[in-house]
Measured scan of single mutants.
Amino acid sequence: TEELDSELELPAGWEKIEDPVYGIYYVDHINRKTQYENPVLEAKRKKQLE
Protein backbone atom coordinates (compact mmCIF):
# COMPACT_ATOMS: atom_id res chain seq x y z
CA THR A 1 0.00 0.00 0.00
CA GLU A 2 1.01 3.64 -0.32
CA GLU A 3 1.47 3.95 3.45
CA LEU A 4 4.04 1.16 3.50
CA ASP A 5 5.89 2.69 0.55
CA SER A 6 6.65 5.86 2.48
CA GLU A 7 8.06 3.87 5.40
CA LEU A 8 10.83 2.32 3.29
CA GLU A 9 14.22 3.94 3.66
CA LEU A 10 15.53 5.42 0.43
CA PRO A 11 19.03 4.57 -0.82
CA ALA A 12 21.84 7.09 -0.28
CA GLY A 13 21.57 10.08 -2.59
CA TRP A 14 17.80 9.78 -3.09
CA GLU A 15 15.17 12.28 -2.01
CA LYS A 16 11.38 12.00 -1.91
CA ILE A 17 9.56 15.07 -3.23
CA GLU A 18 5.87 15.73 -2.57
CA ASP A 19 4.85 18.23 -5.23
CA PRO A 20 1.32 19.71 -5.25
CA VAL A 21 1.23 19.65 -9.07
CA TYR A 22 3.17 16.50 -10.01
CA GLY A 23 2.51 14.40 -6.92
CA ILE A 24 5.15 12.26 -5.23
CA TYR A 25 8.35 11.54 -7.11
CA TYR A 26 11.91 10.56 -6.27
CA VAL A 27 15.15 12.37 -7.11
CA ASP A 28 18.42 10.48 -7.60
CA HIS A 29 21.01 13.19 -6.90
CA ILE A 30 23.93 10.90 -7.74
CA ASN A 31 22.80 10.05 -11.29
CA ARG A 32 20.78 13.26 -11.70
CA LYS A 33 17.48 11.69 -12.64
CA THR A 34 13.92 11.57 -11.36
CA GLN A 35 11.25 8.88 -11.34
CA TYR A 36 7.79 8.29 -9.95
CA GLU A 37 8.44 4.76 -8.70
CA ASN A 38 10.00 4.33 -5.27
CA PRO A 39 13.55 3.03 -5.96
CA VAL A 40 13.33 0.50 -3.12
CA LEU A 41 10.15 -1.03 -4.57
CA GLU A 42 11.61 -0.92 -8.07
CA ALA A 43 14.66 -2.93 -6.94
CA LYS A 44 12.45 -5.50 -5.18
CA ARG A 45 10.25 -5.87 -8.27
CA LYS A 46 13.25 -6.36 -10.56
CA LYS A 47 14.68 -8.97 -8.21
CA GLN A 48 11.40 -10.92 -8.31
CA LEU A 49 11.51 -10.99 -12.12
CA GLU A 50 14.93 -12.67 -12.21
Rank of each mutant, 00 (worst) to 15 (best):
1 T>P: 01
1 T>A: 03
1 T>W: 05
1 T>S: 14
2 E>A: 09
2 E>D: 06
4 L>G: 11
4 L>F: 12
4 L>M: 15
5 D>E: 09
5 D>I: 14
5 D>S: 15
6 S>P: 05
6 S>E: 09
6 S>T: 15
6 S>M: 09
6 S>D: 10
7 E>Y: 04
7 E>S: 10
7 E>I: 06
7 E>R: 13
7 E>F: 07
7 E>M: 12
7 E>H: 08
8 L>D: 03
8 L>I: 05
9 E>I: 06
9 E>K: 11
9 E>F: 03
9 E>P: 12
9 E>W: 03
9 E>M: 11
10 L>Q: 06
10 L>T: 02
10 L>Y: 02
10 L>W: 02
10 L>H: 01
10 L>R: 02
11 P>S: 04
11 P>R: 03
11 P>Q: 04
11 P>W: 02
13 G>K: 05
13 G>I: 01
13 G>S: 05
14 W>L: 00
14 W>I: 15
14 W>A: 01
14 W>P: 02
14 W>E: 04
14 W>H: 02
15 E>P: 00
15 E>N: 03
15 E>L: 02
16 K>L: 03
16 K>M: 08
17 I>E: 04
17 I>N: 02
17 I>L: 12
17 I>T: 07
18 E>A: 13
18 E>R: 03
18 E>I: 08
18 E>H: 11
18 E>Y: 04
19 D>L: 00
19 D>I: 01
19 D>Y: 00
19 D>R: 00
19 D>S: 09
20 P>E: 04
21 V>W: 07
21 V>E: 15
21 V>N: 12
21 V>K: 14
21 V>H: 07
21 V>T: 15
21 V>M: 03
22 Y>C: 12
22 Y>R: 14
22 Y>K: 15
22 Y>G: 13
22 Y>L: 14
22 Y>D: 11
23 G>I: 01
23 G>C: 00
24 I>R: 08
24 I>G: 08
24 I>K: 07
24 I>S: 10
25 Y>A: 06
25 Y>I: 12
25 Y>T: 06
25 Y>Q: 10
26 Y>E: 08
26 Y>Q: 04
26 Y>G: 04
27 V>H: 06
27 V>D: 15
27 V>Y: 04
27 V>F: 07
27 V>I: 09
27 V>K: 14
28 D>A: 00
28 D>V: 00
29 H>E: 05
29 H>C: 03
30 I>F: 08
30 I>K: 11
30 I>Q: 08
30 I>C: 06
30 I>P: 08
30 I>R: 10
31 N>R: 08
31 N>Q: 04
31 N>L: 05
31 N>T: 10
32 R>S: 10
32 R>V: 05
32 R>G: 13
32 R>M: 15
33 K>Q: 13
33 K>I: 06
33 K>R: 13
33 K>P: 00
33 K>N: 09
34 T>D: 04
34 T>Q: 09
34 T>N: 07
35 Q>V: 09
35 Q>I: 02
35 Q>D: 02
35 Q>E: 05
36 Y>M: 15
36 Y>C: 03
37 E>D: 10
37 E>A: 09
37 E>W: 03
38 N>C: 01
38 N>W: 10
38 N>T: 05
38 N>S: 12
38 N>V: 09
39 P>V: 01
39 P>Y: 00
39 P>W: 00
39 P>K: 00
39 P>Q: 03
40 V>W: 09
40 V>G: 12
41 L>A: 14
41 L>D: 14
41 L>S: 13
42 E>G: 10
42 E>T: 11
42 E>K: 03
42 E>A: 08
42 E>Q: 08
42 E>D: 08
43 A>S: 11
43 A>P: 09
43 A>I: 11
44 K>W: 07
44 K>L: 12
45 R>P: 12
45 R>C: 07
46 K>F: 06
46 K>P: 12
46 K>I: 11
46 K>V: 12
46 K>L: 10
47 K>H: 09
47 K>C: 07
47 K>A: 11
47 K>W: 04
47 K>T: 11
48 Q>C: 10
48 Q>R: 08
49 L>G: 11
50 E>S: 06
50 E>L: 08
50 E>W: 15
